[in-house]
């Protein structure tokens, strides 16, 4: 498992560094951007009043934009789940499916390593990557925020902890689905649609109370990127998301251990019904 872990981490270090440095720079830039808005609260109020209420609903409590906490919530923490969600879907969905689709997994899996070692070695490298990106993101925000009042390192860390459980959830969801669905492309599409739909449902639920019941069970509801200065981490939400992620991970492991490693030309790359229809079509055309 150690060999798999180190090799996978080394292979993905470029991606991890790219995402990590990008997020670090975004953090470095976002606080100075706020500084340029600081003291222009009245003008911001007027600007916000001009927005339609439907649009305002997506950003939550917009009136707090003239404080550093509110500004970071709206301009930074509110969009982080979507940005890092892309990383989660790509890395989780591709953990096994990438190598399976390009054909390299067949040779690796024929070496004397168990499926469990292969699976958990790779997953640990993804977990390390997620943690590295989140730490770099946090550092990017901490450096400029140190000069500001009312902003503590721990306070800034709270949304990142919450983001960790959210990202882990989507990583394991994509991983589990990639072992069920015929291709990585379909997995990315399904999980991506789910993630964006969650984002919109949370927004619309602020306008339409009928949607609250759905919004309350979707992952973004449990993301604590807002209210992070005054509120402490809701550990029930945090560990609840972690628990779901662990269940998805265990399901994915169970599935991988029992499933065939796919190679080209086997007919397992499609949904069974589509595969059947296509075969029927070929047989008809072959007559």
């Amino acid at each position: 498992m150690n060999t798999i872990f180190r090799y996978t981490l080394s292979r993905s270090r470029g991606g991890i560094l790219g995402w990590g440095i990008g997020m670090f720079l975004l953090g470095l830039m976002i606080v100075p951007v706020y500084s340029s808005f600081e003291g222009q609260g009245e003008m911001m109020e007027q600007l916000l009043d001009a927005f339609p209420p439907e649009m305002m609903a997506f950003f939550g409590e917009m009136s707090s934009l003239d404080t550093i906490e509110g500004f970071l919530e709206i301009e930074y923490f509110a969009i982080l789940p979507l940005i890092l969600g892309i990383y989660a879907i790509t890395s989780g969905g591709g953990m096994i499916a990438n190598d399976e689709e390009n054909g390299t997994l067949d040779l690796v899996a024929a070496h004397p390593i168990s499926r469990s070692s292969l699976f958990f070695g790779r997953f640990l490298s993804i977990l390390t990557g997620i943690l590295a990106i989140l730490v770099l993101s946090w550092l990017g925000l901490v450096v400029p925020a140190q000069a500001m009042e009312n902003v503590s390192l721990a306070g800034i860390g709270t949304p990142f902890l919450s983001l960790f459980s959210y990202i882990l959830l989507f990583t394991t969801l994509a991983l589990a689905l990639s072992l069920l669905l015929p291709s990585k492309r379909i997995t990315s599409m399904v999980v991506g649609i789910f993630m964006v739909a969650d984002f919109f449902i949370q927004g619309f639920a602020r306008l339409n109370t009928d949607l609250e019941a759905i919004a309350d069970v979707l992952p973004l509801k449990f993301y604590q990127g807002t209210g992070w200065v005054t509120d402490r981490l809701n550990t029930s939400w945090f560990f609840g998301e972690i628990a779901v992620a662990v269940l998805l991970l265990l399901f994915a492991w169970w599935r991988f251990a029992r499933r065939d490693i796919r190679v080209g030309g086997e007919g397992t790359w499609e949904f069974p019904l589509i595969s059947k229809l296509r075969r029927g079509k070929v047989e008809v055309s072959g007559d």
């Binding site: 060999t3 798999i4 090799y7 292979r11 390009n102 054909g103 390299t104 067949d106 040779l107 690796v108 024929a110 070496h111 004397p112 390593i113 190679v263 080209g264």
Partner: peptide
């Protein structure tokens, strides 16, 4: 067992030497 797959695919960015080291570590 030593195995050579019929449809051989390997990490495109790695050199042969690095792949041998990796496979050797797995063994």
């Amino acid at each position: 067992v030593g195995y050579l797959p019929g449809e051989l695919s390997m990490e495109a960015n790695q050199t042969g030497e690095k792949l041998f080291r990796y496979f050797n570590q797995l063994r």
